[in-house]
């Protein structure tokens, strides 16, 4: 139990890492934002005098502060609304988040926009909120939760696909070539999506795909790369479902005196520095700020009685040497 918590804390920290880079990002899909703006007038009227509670996994961490800056942007769009922003002191503090959900229900807020922390412990109290007629919008982390009105967050499959497409089109792997995908913990939903997203275009191009797990850990990514290179010295490209494993794989490739294109995921500061220095070939960036902004905009649309997409994609972008300057 405790060791799981530590692991969660570790993963949380990994999340932190995502934040720094995305704040500098300028490009992101704008369709959702545009449509929200179109309904702005109606939206402002719909939530006049009402409160939207935004609850994240940890109120003070860098990543969630970036999400919060997106919430602030949305706040400015709808001056009539009261938008609160809070979260527990740590992502592992599940009971604190449950208390925040219960408090929001007691205050009779108009909508709850939440990044559910922990496994599924918060869902029963969210169910109570939904039973009380409060619309629930999940952000950042999707859950199998029937009453949810929408999920707003990174489309991890799209991120994986961007990496797979790049390997096929730009790296130029051909049918019969071998590509390695190093993924996070077996069974982890986020890594499943990233892996599947990358595998599809690779398989479609006739590429042999090897998938091996490295638990999102740099040293394990390095070991996996060393081992796979032993059996497959002609590896043409590598996609790792997070940057830590990508950086480990890079170290292994360098030690074996091989130049193999390696793409990571998260565009964390280490990966950005490596891309700039000519190490990693690329990394998939996410946009936490958009998650906060689109989350609140979606809530406002629901309050205005408009229909919303069940999945609002906040976009991903492949960072390479060409555009790395935008991400520093």
């Amino acid at each position: 139990m405790k060791s799981k918590r530590t692991m969660a804390a570790g993963l949380a920290a990994l999340g932190l890492v995502l934040a720094a880079c995305s704040s500098g990002a300028t490009t992101a899909p704008s369709s959702a934002a545009a449509s929200a703006a179109a309904s702005g007038a109606a939206g402002a009227a719909a939530c006049q005098g009402k409160t939207i509670a935004v609850i994240v996994k940890a109120g003070t961490s860098t990543y969630w502060k970036t999400v919060g800056s997106g919430v602030d942007d949305a706040k400015a769009e709808f001056p009539g609304c009261t938008v609160t922003f809070e979260g527990p002191d740590a992502e592992t503090n599940v009971t604190a988040q449950i208390a925040e959900v219960e408090a929001a229900v007691a205050k009779k807020v108009a909508a709850i926009v939440i990044a559910v922390t922990g496994a599924d412990q918060v869902l029963p109290s969210l169910q109570k909120a939904a039973d009380a007629g409060i619309p629930i919008i999940l952000i950042d982390t999707n859950k199998d939760f029937t009453p949810k009105k929408a999920f707003v967050g990174t489309d991890n499959a799209a991120g994986g696909k961007a990496a797979g497409d790049y390997i096929v089109k730009t790296v130029g792997v051909k049918a019969g070539d071998t590509v390695l995908i190093i993924r996070g913990q077996a069974g982890d939903a986020v890594h499943n999506l990233r892996e599947q997203g990358a595998t599809d275009p690779l398989k479609a191009a006739g590429v042999t795909v090897i998938v091996q797990p490295a638990d999102s850990d740099r040293a394990k990514g390095q070991a996996v790369m060393e081992n796979v290179l032993q059996a497959n010295p002609n590896l043409k490209a590598v996609f790792a479902t997070n940057d830590e494993m990508a950086l480990g794989a890079l170290k292994a490739a360098q030690q074996a005196n091989k130049t193999i294109p390696i793409i990571g995921f998260d565009a964390n500061p280490d990966a950005i520095a490596s891309i700039e220095a000519g190490g990693l070939t690329g990394s998939i960036a996410q946009f936490p700020k958009k998650i906060g902004q689109f989350g609140v905009e979606t809530a406002v649309k629901i309050l205005a009685g408009e229909s919303v997409d069940a999945n609002v994609n906040t976009g991903v972008e492949l960072v390479t040497k060409d555009n790395v300057a935008n991400f520093k």
């Binding site: 740099r218 170290k251 280490d270």
Partner: peptide, 15 residues
């Protein structure tokens, strides 16, 4: 491990 990975990272050694 620091020499091997040429780094130090707070999630090292999980498990």
């Amino acid at each position: 491990l620091a020499g091997r990975t040429d780094s130090g990272y707070p999630n090292a050694g999980l498990g």
